[in-house]
Simulated scan of single mutants.
Amino acid sequence: MIAGLDHVVVLLGDIKAGTIAYQTLFALAPAWQNTGDGAERVLFTLDNMTLELMSPSGDGATADRIRAVLAEQGEGLASICFRTADIAKMHRRLDRLALKPEPVAEVESRDAATGAILSWRRTRAATEATRGVRLFFLELAKERPLSVRTTAASVTAMDHVVISTSEPECAAALYGARLGLDMALDRSHPDWGRLMFFRCGDLIVEVVHRPGKDTDVDNRHDKLWGLSWRVANIDATRARLVSAGVDVSEVRTGRKPGTRVLTVHNGTCGIPTLLVEPAQRTAF
């Protein structure tokens, strides 16, 4: 039913600063820009999903809602949206699973630069039924244009989105049994806590339980916590970011065998961010 992760939304007070930050991080140009309905939006579309930056614009219910969320939670990850091929069937499933979906809405967006139009149909599960994480579901009429690389050593795709929970069994039931994502890993480690990996297209929804470490997570609410991005050559990407003034860690061995990773300390709008060079596949 769920074909993949369509996009994640980051709420910002200053979308111009956020756009510059992610242009630098990704070495990609925005693929879509739109203002309307109380919000300004900038989209970066990578090989397997889209990052949507959003800030309030003007007056109205949507602008007021965004400002209220920013005042309560600050800038950062706000929601995730799953892709489906049949939004009507997805809506029926969500309803049967007591996730209380909103009526399916028809949505249209016009790119400010080109005048091109995208349209889609979407619904949203009730946030109280999804443990506080805002989950949307979308059927897109046609693919978005990809972001254009601005220099070498760019980010190519998302590797995983991280959700922090204090109730791992409840989270596992939501993403696995109810939404139907394939659990690829369920492992506990004394330093990392409990890690659950759910396949979603060609990326991972990672649910993390870290007893005693996530003091801002309560028993009723999970939290969108961090993002991980793929790069083809992590040494080249690190050199590019350092030259641009971004604070990054040294490259180290990743938890997954064969991977190499680094942590990005700034320029991510406050979102914990990891870059991953995937393991090299051996040709036979």
Results as ranks from 00 to 15, higher is better:
I2G: 09
A3V: 02
G4Y: 05
L5V: 10
L5P: 08
L5R: 06
G13Y: 08
D14E: 05
T19W: 00
I20V: 09
Q23H: 11
F26E: 10
F26Y: 09
A27F: 03
A27S: 15
A31V: 03
N34Q: 15
T35K: 15
G36V: 04
R41S: 00
R41M: 01
T45I: 05
L46K: 11
L51W: 10
E52I: 11
E52V: 14
L53E: 14
S55E: 04
P56L: 05
P56C: 10
S57A: 14
S57F: 09
I66W: 10
I66Q: 08
V69M: 03
L70T: 10
G74K: 07
A78L: 06
A78R: 13
F82T: 05
A85S: 13
I87E: 07
A88G: 03
A88L: 05
K89P: 02
H91G: 14
R92P: 01
L94Q: 06
R96G: 10
P101I: 04
P101Y: 03
A105I: 06
A112L: 12
A112G: 08
A113W: 11
T114S: 11
I117D: 00
L118V: 00
W120K: 05
A125V: 11
A125I: 10
A126D: 15
R131C: 03
F136I: 01
F137E: 11
F137V: 03
L138D: 11
L138P: 02
E139H: 13
E139P: 06
S147E: 07
V148N: 12
V148L: 15
A153M: 01
V155C: 10
V155R: 05
V155M: 07
A157M: 08
M158W: 00
E167F: 00
P168H: 01
P168D: 00
E169L: 13
A171G: 08
A172V: 12
A173M: 08
G180K: 13
L181A: 07
L185S: 07
L185E: 12
D186A: 14
H189G: 13
P190Y: 03
D191A: 15
G193E: 11
L195P: 06
R199H: 15
D202I: 07
V207P: 03
V208M: 09
V208N: 06
R210G: 02
P211I: 00
K213C: 11
K213P: 04
D214I: 02
D214G: 00
V217G: 04
D218T: 05
N219F: 06
R220I: 03
D222T: 04
D222E: 01
G226P: 15
L227T: 14
R230K: 14
V231S: 07
V231E: 04
A232V: 01
N233S: 07
D235V: 10
D235G: 12
D235E: 14
A236L: 13
A236G: 14
R238G: 02
V242F: 00
V246T: 03
V248F: 12
V248S: 10
R252Y: 01
G258F: 00
T259N: 07
R260A: 11
R260C: 08
V261F: 01
V264W: 04
V264F: 04
V264Y: 05
T268H: 06
C269R: 09
P272S: 10
L274I: 14
E277F: 02
A279H: 12
A279Y: 09
Q280Y: 12
T282E: 01
A283Y: 07
